[in-house]
């Protein structure tokens, strides 16, 4: 029964994504349809990369921490990204190559985020194995520090520079550089496939550290590996479109409720599809209802924030 119900949900999700894809590609096309199609279809792949990466990263992260309200960004990747952008604008100016050249900015941000999270994980893996919450707390504190420092710099920055800086620190699919899409796909697809192949092993982590060890999983080493993969996925999403922490949160939590299962194989695909659907419909709104007056990032933060509060209150009342 459960399997049948889940199949129906998958079917409906596929239909909905298909419908929105069609709408997104063809709605309000005037004149040369081929031109419009080519322009719009370029944006589709980043939708899928970001949707699946952020959601699967969040699900894995939540399984590891056994907590459904955390997202990988708790270790401060978002804040680090915004800080790095701010520092570039502040010290190097608006005309520097790191601002004008999107590719360079992408790789710079990616290496910075992956590098610093690797440092954090490695430190805790060596010094305090098994102390995940201590590590998250350290990340959280660092993140807060980054945000405060960012604020400090942003107050002093030139108002014109602040405008363009602000635009680059809000998630937006409008400014994705298509040349980066292939590289992102090349980086994320193997990780996503690997995590999918690990579904059963990830399922065991639900039982907690002691039973996972007892069932033959070398938890500490495995966690290090997973943390690294999760941070790469999150960093790619962030470097590509900007901070999207709530997107993975929405996809993961709706998937838990909709599919009512612990199986990662189902949750990965379902959650990823939900996020893609969310991006597609949101982007449709952004482009045609709000006429690009806002970005998808704002909508994601708005809806994600409300949903986060809802989950928080619900978790609270159930315990």
């Amino acid at each position: 029964m459960k399997v049948q119900k889940n199949r129906l949900i998958f079917f409906m999700l596929t239909v909905a994504i298909g419908l929105f894809l069609f709408l997104y590609l063809t709605y309000n096309t005037r004149g040369n349809i081929e031109f419009a199609l080519r322009l719009r279809s370029q944006r589709i792949i980043p939708f899928f990369i970001v949707g699946f990466s952020s959601t699967i990263a969040t699900i894995v992260f939540q399984t590891m921490t056994q907590n459904v309200i955390l997202t990988p960004n708790i270790i401060g990747l978002d804040s680090l990204y915004i800080l790095s952008q701010t520092v570039i604008f502040f010290f190097l100016g608006i005309n520097h190559l790191l601002v004008t050249n999107q590719q360079l900015n992408f790789f710079f941000s990616l290496i910075l985020m992956v590098g610093s999270s690797l440092g954090l994980f490695w430190l805790f893996f060596k010094k305090y194995p098994g102390k995940i919450y201590l590590m998250l707390m350290t990340g959280l504190i660092l993140g807060t520090f980054f945000s405060s420092f960012t604020n400090f710099l942003q107050v002093m920055i030139d108002p014109n520079e602040f405008n363009s800086l602000f635009a680059s620190t809000i998630a937006s699919f409008n400014r994705v550089d298509t040349s980066l899409v292939t590289f992102s796909l090349f980086l994320t697809l193997p990780i996503l496939l690997y995590l999918f192949s690990q579904s059963s092993k990830l399922d065991v982590l639900h039982l907690g550290r002691a039973y996972a060890l007892g069932l033959g999983i070398n938890v500490d080493v495995y966690f290090l590996k997973l943390f690294i993969l999760v941070s790469v996925l999150t960093s790619v999403s962030t470097a590509l479109v900007g901070p999207v922490s709530f997107l993975g949160f929405i996809g993961a939590n709706i998937a838990y409720r909709l599919f009512n299962t612990y199986r990662h194989s189902v949750l990965f695909i379902g959650g990823g599809m939900i996020s893609v659907l969310f991006i597609l419909s949101g982007q449709l709104f952004v482009e045609h209802v709000f006429a690009l007056q806002t970005t998808l990032g704002v909508i994601i933060q708005f809806i994600g924030g409300i949903y986060f509060l809802f989950i928080l209150l619900k978790e609270r009342s159930s315990t």
Partner: peptide
């Protein structure tokens, strides 16, 4: 905290042999 049936829980005992 995880939502599992008794049978699903017990079947985790087979993980070392069959990896799921």
């Amino acid at each position: 905290n995880v939502r599992l049936t008794v049978r699903e829980l017990v079947s985790f005992g087979r993980f070392p042999y069959t990896k799921g």
